[in-house]
């Protein structure tokens, strides 16, 4: 089994894994980072979104081996101690989560949007979320939270 090594949430990690191991399974099963979820098997739902080298990707569609040497950030790596990331805080403030299952992927995706587009319009937010499914919220409060977080992050 080949060895993979990468930096996850600032920590260097490595393991021997089967080549067919997906990054999401490496995170969940090997590293115990179960905040990243699997909600589909067709690369569409976005529950598994993490950042690889600062960019949002679907960790269910990347082999662990493909992340060799990469910097990976998961939902567990966002908060600074007890202090939530502004996006996490905005999700809480605006009730942008219900069951919480899609939430990690939503938050990771939203942070990447705001990084690329500091002042996204409602339309841009809704379009950006095309790769993130939520069955609880009707997206209404997610859109509100992302707009609010963008404002906070602009300072």
């Amino acid at each position: 089994m080949p060895a993979v090594s990468m930096t996850v949430n600032g920590k260097k990690v490595s393991a021997d894994v089967e080549p067919r191991t997906l990054l999401v399974h490496y995170l969940r099963e090997h590293l115990g980072l179960t905040g990243t979820h699997v909600g589909c098997d067709t690369s569409q739902c976005g529950a598994c979104v993490v950042h690889i080298n600062g960019e949002s990707v679907k960790s269910c569609t990347v082999l662990a081996a493909q992340a060799e040497g990469a910097k990976v950030t998961t939902i567990e790596g966002l908060a600074d101690g007890d202090k939530l990331h502004p996006m996490q805080e905005a999700f809480r403030e605006h009730h942008a989560l219900q069951c919480g299952f899609c939430t990690p992927g939503m938050v990771m995706s939203a942070i990447d949007l705001v990084k690329k587009n500091k002042n996204p319009s409602e339309k841009e937010i809704r379009e950006w979320l095309s790769g993130n499914l939520c069955r609880c919220t009707g997206y209404h409060n997610i859109v509100k939270a992302i707009a609010a977080a963008a404002q906070t992050m602009r300072g």
Binding site: L22, D41, T42, S43, T61, L63, Q66
Partner: peptide, 24 residues
């Protein structure tokens, strides 16, 4: 050959292809 993998990996996940080797 495996490039970005966003066509190939979904195909593999559905077990619709069975390559012996992936060359990244």
């Amino acid at each position: 050959f495996l490039a970005g993998g966003h066509t190939l990996i979904p195909t593999l996940k559905q077990r619709l292809a069975r390559p012996s080797d992936l060359i990244d």
